[in-house]
């Protein structure tokens, strides 16, 4: 049982949704990222996803692309990702890494899983790893006891939802819409349909991501989802801030608002 499993069980017992924040390692800088992680944890997020910035992020919209560019220009590497993960787990929140597949393969599949575990991480979200290509990864995550977290989409059919969720641990990442990451003015109705369909095939917690940026959106998602994932909204604030402190204050404020939202949904 990972810390993420415990957190998801705890919020279920509290009859609310978990607030899950995403931030890329090395953004806005190595130190700035550490401070942002601490600010998010202090503001009440339940779990943090550390993004492994990647040169070809086909699932990401312009905001996360820009953050990844800044991070990569700063020289972020795997060691920095694990260091950021350690900062997160040291605050006491559950933490996972979100990464495209190639950096894992390049680092070494077993070694990557081991480093996640060594730094207190609960799991890894792999948005472009299909279950058909997952044998080595599932063996590696199982061996060290971390959650392999898969993403499902509104276009995923019921048979495939069953097959994917059968391989998943921690929570099922439900993409709220067909598209890339980024804030949206409204969260698509596809999200509730997808969550209902996932419920019929698994008892795992279900977290919804893509497009969430406000307390109201968090509240409406918390009515039916077990977790609410917010990424681009935080990154936008950090990108817009004139000083580091202004950025930290802004994400802290938003996280507190969202933390209220995930408690208001039911």
């Amino acid at each position: 049982m990972t810390q993420l499993d415990s957190v998801m069980a705890k919020v279920r017992a509290e009859n609310r949704a978990a607030l899950i924040a995403y931030i890329p390692a090395g953004f806005p800088s190595q130190q700035g990222c550490a401070k942002a992680i601490q600010a998010l944890a202090a503001a009440g997020v339940d779990a943090i996803e550390i993004g492994f910035p990647y040169s070809d992020p086909v699932m990401d919209g312009p905001v996360i692309q820009e953050a990844a560019d800044i991070s990569l220009k700063g020289g972020t590497n795997a060691a920095d990702v694990f260091a950021a993960l350690k900062v997160a787990t040291d605050t006491g929140v559950a933490a996972v890494v979100m990464t495209y597949w190639n950096p894992i393969e390049r680092y070494g599949v077993n070694e990557f899983a081991q480093s996640i575990a060594d730094n207190g991480g609960s799991g890894v979200i792999t948005p472009d790893l299909t279950i058909e290509e997952s044998d080595r990864w599932l063996a590696a995550t199982s061996k060290v006891g971390i959650n392999p977290i898969y993403v499902v989409a509104p276009s995923t059919n019921d048979a495939r939802l069953a097959a994917v969720t059968a391989k998943t641990g921690g929570f099922v990442y439900a993409a709220s819409l067909m598209g890339v990451t980024g804030t949206r003015t409204s969260v698509s109705t596809d999200a509730s349909n997808l969550v209902s369909r996932v419920r019929t095939v698994t008892d795992l917690p279900i977290s919804v991501g893509l497009g969430v940026s406000t307390r109201e959106q968090a509240k409406s998602l918390a009515a039916y989802a077990d977790g609410v994932i917010v990424g681009s909204a935080f990154i936008k604030l950090l990108l817009a801030a004139k000083t580091e402190q202004e950025g930290l204050d802004a994400i802290s404020h938003l996280a507190k608002e969202l933390a209220l939202g995930v408690r208001e949904g039911r």
């Binding site: 086909v58 699932m59 597949w101 190639n102 948005p127 472009d128 790893l129 299909t130 279950i131 058909e132 290509e133 997952s134 044998d135 898969y150 993403v151 499902v152 989409a153 509104p154 276009s155 995923t156 059919n157 495939r160 994917v164 993409a175 067909m178």
Partner: peptide, 21 residues
């Protein structure tokens, strides 16, 4: 499990689930 479309260890599908359908 092995997906179709492999050439030895190469090929396969590494894509978001949204595109599988």
């Amino acid at each position: 499990m092995s997906s179709p479309g492999h050439f030895g260890e190469y090929g396969g599908r590494f894509v978001p689930e949204a595109l599988i359908g």
